[in-house]
Simulated scan of single mutants.
Amino acid sequence: MAALLSERARADSTGEVLLQVSGLAYDYSGVSAVSDCSLELPRGKIAALIGGNGAGKTTSVKMIAGALRPRSGSIVLDGRDITNMPAHQTVELGIALVPEGRLVFQHLTVRENLILSGHVRRARERCQQNLERVFDLFPRLEERQGQNAGSLSGGEQQMLAIGRGLMTMPRILVLDEPSLGLSPILVSQIFSLIRKLNEEGISVLLVEQNVHHTLAIADYAYVLEKGRVVQKGEGQALLKDPKVKEAYLGLA
């Protein structure tokens, strides 16, 4: 797996702040979806954004990845303001969004999906190497590389979505609900994979409703409610927090 990572990703394992998000806000047709999202992602760490349905998690990470332009606030990557930078530029700086719902190209083959993602400028020269590494990581994708992505199972499509993100050689892998709709066995495998990728040097921003699994692997976590970050702390500390346990784990 190590060969999949860029030298920049390896350098991002120092623990210093890599991504600084301050006061992000976004409206849909005049209705506030996010009013104050602020978080930090240290280099080489996992930061999680948790909250219920409609809390604004997906909107927040879409702003961070450049898919949405915030109404206000700032996004700083490694000291560089990228607040209004579009997605095709943020991916060249090393931010890869694996979106909710996977959104693979249904009528392209598995291999075509991966190759297409691997042609971003930062990863183009190592496209074949990265493809081989993704197949090492997901042997099922290699077996099905000539198959249309739309014919894959939900778990296989999630593997493909993550593989596409890895083909860009990300410094930050942004995962939006990667366990959604998967069986318990596949959920455990996905979280083990996230930890492995992080250990190999990729910083991870994780959005998840599976709060227990998420806080168990997150170095830091932020609780988003009605578009605002209302609580933050180390993952293990929030896992034991009575308010979090009652609100998200069903434990009084």
Rank of each mutant, 00 (worst) to 15 (best):
V207W: 13
E92V: 08
V120M: 00
S38V: 13
L180R: 12
R133Q: 14
A247F: 00
G250V: 09
G181V: 01
G201W: 09
G73N: 12
G233C: 10
G155R: 04
M167H: 07
S29M: 08
R195H: 13
R171N: 04
D27M: 08
L116R: 01
S72G: 14
I162A: 00
A11L: 13
D241V: 12
L68V: 04
L19A: 09
G227T: 07
E7P: 04
H88Y: 15
G201A: 11
L249F: 07
S6E: 07
A252W: 02
K196E: 11
L238C: 06
K240C: 00
L114A: 03
L215N: 06
A161G: 08
V110E: 03
P139D: 11
M159N: 05
G52H: 15
L152E: 01
L193M: 13
S153I: 15
C37D: 02
T109M: 09
A47G: 08
A221K: 10
T14D: 15
R121I: 08
Q158G: 05
G66C: 06
G54W: 13
A149F: 14
V91K: 13
G235A: 03
R111N: 02
R195E: 08
Q129R: 11
R43L: 00
L93Y: 03
D78C: 04
Y26P: 01
L193T: 06
